[in-house]
Amino acid sequence: MKINQDYIKVLLCAFEETEGPDTLLTELENKGYQRNDGEFIFHMRLLTDNKLIERVDGEGGFGHLIYSNMVRGINTSEYHWIIVPLRLTAKGHDFLSDIRQKEVWQAIKANFKEQGLGTLTSIAKSLAEAYAKKSIKNITGIDI
């Protein structure tokens, strides 16, 4: 499955738009995400892998677990969910802030379509910093 940059952006926005400091799976489902949708699981894994979201209790993952069972000599696996509070990390907030900048998002969409999420977070940060420096120079005349 390929990374869908737009999906990542709106999913991060859904985390940010929750009422409290934590986000529950049920809140994301109320926003239209389905817990067993492959695209949702794939992108949640990427957000977790890149430390943009995390469980509030500090444990790994986001509540999507696989259990292996031996049934009549056959190993079977089933996915299960546990509902755990999740949070948008500081890195997640920063990345979302960066990609909300119109110039940054346009540059990413036009020039970095095939990049992984780790690279995208770095690129977004670099672009946001460059645009900030340009703005500082335009406002103050000081070249940083």
Score class of each variant (00 low, 15 high):
41 I>D: 02
42 F>W: 12
43 H>G: 01
44 M>Y: 00
45 R>Y: 08
45 R>F: 07
45 R>K: 12
46 L>Y: 03
46 L>R: 01
47 L>H: 11
47 L>A: 05
50 N>T: 04
50 N>P: 00
51 K>Q: 09
51 K>S: 10
51 K>M: 05
51 K>R: 09
53 I>E: 06
53 I>P: 02
54 E>R: 14
54 E>I: 03
55 R>Q: 13
55 R>P: 11
56 V>C: 14
56 V>F: 14
57 D>H: 07
57 D>E: 06
58 G>E: 09
59 E>W: 04
59 E>P: 00
60 G>L: 12
60 G>K: 13
61 G>V: 10
62 F>P: 07
62 F>I: 09
62 F>L: 11
63 G>D: 04
64 H>T: 04
64 H>D: 10
64 H>W: 10
64 H>N: 11
66 I>E: 14
67 Y>M: 15
67 Y>P: 07
71 V>E: 09
72 R>L: 14
73 G>A: 01
74 I>Y: 08
75 N>D: 11
75 N>P: 08
76 T>Y: 07
77 S>P: 01
78 E>H: 08
80 H>T: 14
80 H>N: 13
80 H>P: 02
80 H>Y: 13
81 W>M: 03
82 I>Y: 02
83 I>C: 07
83 I>S: 14
84 V>S: 11
84 V>P: 03
85 P>W: 01
85 P>N: 04
85 P>M: 00
89 T>W: 05
89 T>H: 08
89 T>Q: 07
90 A>S: 10
